[in-house]
């Protein structure tokens, strides 16, 4: 009896193991297909980017939509980010007698890392899902096909304009978010003492170097590009029905958030290497 149980247990384990392997293979295949599809989509984007006619009006409309509509959200989160980071860091800094370093520490943290990454993640949630859902619903309701049969290249009109707008507007949003975060930090510092605004700015920027600002700004262009292209890709090829639109919006956020962390990791490594070579 015991042996039979053992045999069944072994069989069951073997069978589960086989299924597991198969599903893992399918997931790998799906993942590779997705990477291939996105790469091809990106290559078509670059081909259409340099080919006239250029859709200036649609680009400006999308820049306005992406930039201005996200400004209040970025402003509020940026302000809270600076305020909270300063309030949380203050007790430790005070304990070490380094309270005067607070503006410098906060500015380096925000401008080098927290500002760009948090802002890009918020944009992935708002802009990436918006683009994914918009293009997804256009695909489902055949608006993209209608555009094509009316002699308009939807890749150029819908995709190129949105990706470029996102690539340009997200660095601007990050700079705005950094500025508002420092304002939040200034208010937090003044909650427990007094420091004038010129002195705060002086201390904050004294700690910053060229190598803090430039790589942090350059990587935001890549964040913006990733959010735009992934949102467009998921929306453009969304499945049928409302479920497909929902899935497109959802996966646009998930994949672009993951892409932001990967780009950040690569950017940090590259800037470190570059920093070592130029020292």
């Amino acid at each position: 009896m015991l042996n039979i149980k053992k045999i069944f247990r072994n069989k069951a384990t073997k069978s589960n193991h086989d299924e597991f392997d198969l599903s893992r293979f399918k997931n790998t295949e799906r993942f590779l297909n997705e990477i291939g599809g996105l790469s091809r989509f990106t290559s078509i984007f670059f081909r259409e980017l340099f080919r006239p006619p250029y859709e200036y009006k649609e680009f400006l409309k999308q820049s306005y939509n992406i930039g201005l509509s996200t400004l209040p959200l970025i402003g509020i989160t940026g302000f809270i980010m600076g305020l909270v980071l300063t309030l949380q860091s203050r007790p430790v800094m005070t304990e070490f007698g380094a309270e005067s370093w607070l503006p410098g520490m906060v500015s380096v943290s925000i401008i080098r890392e927290i500002g760009p990454v948090i802002t890009a993640l918020i944009c992935a949630g708002k802009i990436g899902s918006g683009i994914g859902a918009e293009l997804g619903s256009m695909r489902v309701t055949e608006q993209i096909d209608a555009m094509e049969v009316s002699g308009t290249n939807p890749m150029k009109y819908l995709v190129v304009t949105r990706v470029i707008a996102s690539t340009i507007m997200i660095p601007i949003l990050v700079l705005y978010s950094d500025a508002v975060s420092l304002l939040g930090s200034y208010i937090a510092v003044n909650m427990h003492g007094f420091i004038s605004l010129p002195l705060f700015i002086n201390q904050a920027f004294d700690s910053l170097h060229y190598f803090d600002l430039v790589p942090a700004t350059i990587k935001t262009f890549f964040f913006g590009f990733a959010i735009g292209i992934i949102g467009c890709y998921k929306g453009y090829f969304s499945g049928n029905g409302t479920e497909g639109v929902g899935r497109a919006a959802n996966s646009a956020v998930v994949i672009s958030s993951l892409a932001i962390f990967i780009i950040d990791l690569i950017a940090v490594q590259l800037s470190e290497i570059f920093h070592v070579f130029t020292m």
Partner: peptide
């Protein structure tokens, strides 16, 4: 060649 879609496909 004009095409009239089943769901109209008006730009909403």
């Amino acid at each position: 060649v004009g095409f009239i879609f089943q769901g109209n496909a008006l730009y909403d």
